[in-house]
Amino acid sequence: MSKNIPTRLAFAGPLKEGATIEARWSAAHPMDSGFRVDDSGNKIARNIIHTVKVLLNDRLILEADLGTAMTSPVYLAFPLQVPAGGGVLRVLWQDDRGQVGETVQRLIL
């Protein structure tokens, strides 16, 4: 059952060719560490986003392995160089249940 996970991808910095900007990605995933218990005392199963892949104009620029120490919502901000003509940044994620998602943002110069 696919649960809708809201994500957002924003840029900070000048959208000019060659400039280094910061991409800020967050995802409202529960990021259950597997250590918490619910009201009845039952352990809540671990379910976190464990892999994130970032593609800039379809080229893989970053791969991240996330552990249970990452917060909910997950927040990751990383630099990238604005390519000539701008383009598209895609952040792909996958969680322990096999659910996948994608956040896309255009880099418009």
């Binding site: 620029i61 970053l62 991240a64 392995d65 249970t68 990751l76 630099p79």
Partner: peptide, 27 residues
């Protein structure tokens, strides 16, 4: 000190000489 100490692992496929990472962690 965390039960799972490896919080984050990044593999970069570029050639950045200076890099700023920002994130939030649960301690």
């Amino acid at each position: 000190e965390n039960p799972n100490p490896l919080a984050l692992q990044l593999k970069l496929h570029g050639d950045m000489q200076s890099y700023q990472l920002n994130t939030r962690l649960r301690l």
